[in-house]
Nucleic acid binder design. Structure first.
Lengths: 157, 157
DNA sequence: CATATAAAGGATAAAAATGTCTTTTAATCT
DNA sequence: AGATTAAAAGACATTTTTATCCTTTATATG
C-alpha cells in the first residue's frame, strides 16, 4: 500500500553522477583531514566516506592526474591537498570526473533552446540551473571547508 | 587546443534521465497535436521528436499503464491525451519513468542532510533544488501547453 | 641493495540504462 | 469470421556506469 501523493522527499531529479559525488566527498575529506605532512591512504578515505575502496582509488587517480589532489607513492605516502589544490573550483572536480561530453544545457537536450527562445521546460529550470552552475564555478574546496569550520555546514560525509 | 576556462555552457549537472526527457517530449507532443479524435501513432511521434521508435514505444507503454497518456489499439488507434491526462503534474511523468528508488534528496547522497543540518554541498544547491522540484510538482502538462500557445515558449521538440 | 609500502595502470566483471526485435493481444473493417 | 492494424508484452543486444582485481612503478627504510 502506498501513500505517495506526489510528496517527493526523495527524487531522481537533480544530480551529479555517483562518481562525482565520490570525488567531492573524497576531496572534502582530504581538505578537512590531510596536509602535506598528514597524508591519507585510499583505504582510510574509503571507510569514513563509505566509498568502495577500489573504485575510490580510480577516482583519486583521475583527480591526481588533473592536479585536484596530490599523491605520493611508497611508505608514508598517500593522498593530501596542497595549498594549490584547495583552491580548486567545485565545478572542476565534477568536470574532470563526469567529462564534458554531455552536450545538454537544455533540459530536453534541444539544440535551439536558450533564454531568447526557450523550450517548454526552460523557464521551469532556467534560473535554477544557472544559479547552481554559478555556485559550483565560484565556490572552491576552501569555501566549503570554511563553511564547515564556521558551523554553517556539517560532517560526517 | 582547448580554451575551456571553466566556461561550462554544456554541463552534465542538472539532469533527468534520457528516458524521462523522452517521456516529457512525447507527452508534450501529444498535448499539442492530439485529441481523443486525433490519435497519433508511436512512429509519428518518434520522427518529429527524434526519439528512437522502439524505445519510445516502451516509454509510452509505461506512461499509458500509469494513466499519463491514453492509447487505443488497432486501426485508427494510437496515443492521445484525455482531458484528465492533460492535468498530469510534470513531476509525475518523471517519477513514473525514473522511479523513486534513488533515495537521494541530498547532493552527496547523505542520510543526515537537511536544512537544519546541511551537508557541505547543501546550501550550494538547496534553494535551487527545492524551487525546481516545486515547479515540477506545481506545473502540469496543461501549463506548458499554455506557455506555448501564448508565445512564452517554443517548439519544435 | 633488498624489501616493504602505496599509488598508478591495465584488464575484467557486474549492474543499470538505453535500444532493438519478435510475438501476442485488442480493436477495426470488410 | 478473417484479415489488417497498432499497442502491449517479452526477450534480447548494446552501451555506459560502477566496481573489483592483478600487475607495475615509484618511494622509503632497514
Amino acid at each position: 500500500m502506498s501513500f505517495n501523493l506526489y510528496i517527493y522527499f526523495n527524487n531522481p531529479l537533480i544530480m551529479i553522477s555517483n562518481s562525482s559525488k565520490y570525488a567531492v566527498k573524497a576531496v572534502l575529506y582530504l581538505a578537512v583531514n590531510s596536509s602535506e605532512h598528514q597524508k591519507i591512504l585510499a583505504k582510510d578515505i574509503s571507510v569514513p566516506t563509505n566509498i568502495p575502496k577500489a573504485y575510490l582509488s580510480k577516482v583519486l587517480q583521475e583527480l591526481s592526474r588533473h592536479n585536484i589532489v596530490s599523491s605520493v607513492k611508497g611508505p608514508g605516502g598517500g593522498f593530501y591537498l596542497s595549498k594549490e589544490n584547495i583552491n580548486t573550483p567545485l565545478m572542476k572536480i565534477i568536470q574532470v570526473i563526469d567529462g564534458d561530453n554531455r552536450l545538454t544545457s537544455c533540459m530536453l537536450s534541444l539544440q535551439d533552446c536558450d533564454a531568447e527562445h526557450p523550450c517548454p521546460m526552460h523557464d521551469l529550470v532556467g534560473n535554477t540551473k544557472v544559479n547552481f552552475v554559478k555556485n559550483l564555478e565560484q565556490n572552491t574546496v576552501r569555501d566549503l571547508v570554511k563553511d564547515i569550520k564556521t558551523g554553517k555546514s556539517f560532517l560526517p560525509l
